[in-house]
């Protein structure tokens, strides 16, 4: 922590992830986290955030809780990670308890199912928006664009399993980015 910015409070961190977690349907969570953390609050920059998005997807576990760990860790260290993950899971846990007791009366209704499917589609749209922005900012030259397309085709279109694809893609992509990265850091 360099202290160039005021520290983010644990309460604020918890609240942000609580609301994201409570309304997370259909898996479009990463853009929502980006919106709250980067766009609205400026707690992190996009360049710090996007590697977290990659790590969150590559590492085992749920993407959104992994990203909460990454963000919490960056902002407030280990306690920050704990607070962010617990915040993220509080809402779903409470809804799960209610659902476990009441599901046969409520959730089977077709009208509810349609609404949930629609909300999920809206969330996928957020994901698409984030993807377009990520494609733009990652398009530093032909090599990066080729890596991007290769990963998309392999995982998305061909549905190859993530791990082997990533194990090949990371060394290739890093090697291609090496000269520029060394210069930028220098």
């Amino acid at each position: 922590m360099s202290g160039e910015q005021p520290r983010v409070g644990f309460g604020a961190l918890y609240r942000v992830f609580f609301w994201i977690g409570l309304f997370s349907f259909g898996g479009g969570l990463l853009p929502w986290i980006q919106r709250e953390i980067v766009t609205l609050r400026g707690w992190m920059k996009d360049e710090e955030f996007l590697p977290g998005v990659a790590l969150a997807q590559i590492l085992p576990g749920v993407n959104s809780t992994n990203l909460a760990v990454f963000v919490g860790q960056r902002l407030r260290g280990a306690p920050g990670s704990v607070v962010a993950v617990i915040g993220m899971l509080t809402g779903p846990f409470l809804v799960m308890l209610v659902a476990a007791v009441t599901y046969q009366y409520v959730l089977g209704a077709p009208a509810i199912q349609a609404a949930m499917a629609g909300a999920a589609a809206g969330a996928i749209g957020m994901m698409l928006n984030m993807g377009v922005a990520a494609v733009r900012s990652a398009s530093r030259g032909v090599a990066a664009i080729l890596v991007m397309i290769a990963v998309f085709v392999a995982v998305g279109v061909m549905r190859w399993s993530l791990i082997p694809v990533v194990l090949v893609a990371i060394p290739v992509s890093v090697a291609l980015a090496w000269p520029r990265g060394a210069r930028d850091a220098g």
């Binding site: 590697p51 990659a54 990520a134 900012s137 990066a144 990371i170 992509s173 090697a175 090496w178």
Partner: peptide, 8 residues
């Protein structure tokens, strides 16, 4: 920078 296109 190498992870960015993979994330995208």
């Amino acid at each position: 920078q190498g992870l960015a296109p993979i994330a995208a």
